[in-house]
Design a protein around this nucleic acid. Structure first.
Lengths: 256, 256
DNA sequence: TAGTGGTCTAGACCACCTC
DNA sequence: AGGTGGTCTAGACCACTAC
């Protein structure tokens, strides 16, 4: 005998029906009271089962409306191709990529003078707590919050390149601006991690329960030392990162 | 007035105390009944708040023991360096990496003849449902389930390289075995995604609520066509992926 | 045996959405 | 107004862990 608790039976039954198409993406699940009678369970037990599916990222709930099966469309982000070393462009080609996908990009932007958080300082090889310029970007696609991007520049670099600390965009792109001043990024170190969002991240990205964030930390190096560190936070349900390594001429024919 | 529901107040208060070190990683939270009196709330309300923290990945619970603050140690996985194109080695250097970190690797292994799932078939550029060899690996570090790895080889390749379908390890490594038979991988396409685990993944990786998985899909190409597709599923709380791009000689000095 | 969390019930009131 | 989910309570019994 391997009896599952009732709320799991509820979750399992519904999950199966979502998987096999009984409830396709975008459709609505039966209401809690309908599920009570169907499973012969109390309301709390039904809710317990439903909340399991919510935390698995399978469904969402909204007051007054009901439970809806989540639909998944993902946005591909090529991390190795854009920001090409021989052809530096503004930031990370977000505008180009989004527009190419037929979507409408939109972003808010701000520049701050802060002290570098410990993990950033370590990557930039500066003293923890030392001054840094933070250029922060909050990005939307078709008005849906998509990602936040925080780039830190160490103080010594800002002294040489004062426009980094000025508010507002740098027209030609920060990479080109730096290159023109003799600071060339010749390598990157990328780190990718996943975790559940902090309440702050959940707020900025309008993430509900059951959706992890992808954390992408890119540290850019000149020939001598690290010159910037960019931390990008994505909604995990809407994004996928790609890397191309080596010779991929055999991949060109069709879209994968 | 911006009153939060009581269970959120419980969660926020405890989260703050976890963040500021009142409850350090590995320590135990007060029991539910203690929290009831502290917050003047019913047991279900307290449980509701605690389950929020569980689904954020901050704490775990076990019957009879209580709630414990999760501790985070992450394992770095260099995706661009290992499986070096000029120096192919067995699989993805998992054994080497883990041993170097002073940990004890352990894995179970099986080989299956299956039909390629749709997404795999697309990446291998074969008909959906066509035959493929699946080499499946379940990996542990110090007896903690760490990742699962499924590599699919298309039928046409297996005909040329029959040992792929044989159970058991290929001593010299599949990459070398293939290279010796004239099939050389000259490029990779990596895709990285994050999501909540399916019940099956949660079982294999012994993941509790609040821990996402990292999905790493690597498609290997010869000069002509894709020759394999490897899907690795990691515990998101224990792993971080790295990519090195361009010239990183300035990084060598210290550990990042 | 005592204390912990896990499951389940029954009922109440509130907030939001649609009509 | 009527239906939906959101919050909260009080109490019951079970399962696991410690001693």
């Amino acid at each position: 005998m391997n009896k599952q608790p009732k709320y799991r039976q509820v979750a399992d039954a519904l999950r199966r029906e979502i998987d096999n198409g009984t409830f396709p993406p975008g459709s609505r699940l039966p209401s809690e009271s309908e599920l009570q009678t169907r499973f012969g369970a109390s309301r709390n037990t039904v809710r317990n089962g439903l909340s399991l599916l919510v935390s698995e990222g399978l469904i969402t709930s909204s007051q007054g409306l009901g439970y809806e099966v989540r639909s998944h469309e993902v946005f591909e982000l090529n991390a190795s191709r854009f920001e090409n070393l021989n052809f530096p462009q503004n930031g990370d080609a977000y505008n180009t990529d989004v527009t190419n996908a037929g979507r409408r990009p939109h972003q808010t932007f701000r520049v701050e003078m802060t002290s570098a958080p410990e993990d950033i300082a370590k990557r930039l090889k500066v003293e923890p707590g030392s001054k840094a310029v933070l250029r922060f970007c909050h990005r939307y696609v078709d008005d849906v919050p998509w990602s936040t991007q925080a780039t830190y520049y160490p103080a010594w670099l800002v002294e040489q390149s004062p426009r980094l600390a000025e508010p507002g965009d740098i027209e030609e792109g920060t990479t080109r601006y730096l290159a023109a001043r003799g600071i060339e990024q010749i390598g990157y170190f990328d780190e990718i991690a996943a975790r559940m969002p902090t309440p702050e991240e959940a707020r900025l990205l309008e993430i509900g329960a059951g959706v992890p964030v992808l954390l992408w930390t890119r540290t850019g190096y000149s020939a001598d030392r690290p010159i910037r560190c960019t931390v990008t936070t994505f909604r995990g349900d809407l994004n996928r990162m790609n890397y191309e390594i080596g010779d991929l001429s055999a991949r060109e024919n069709e879209g994968q």
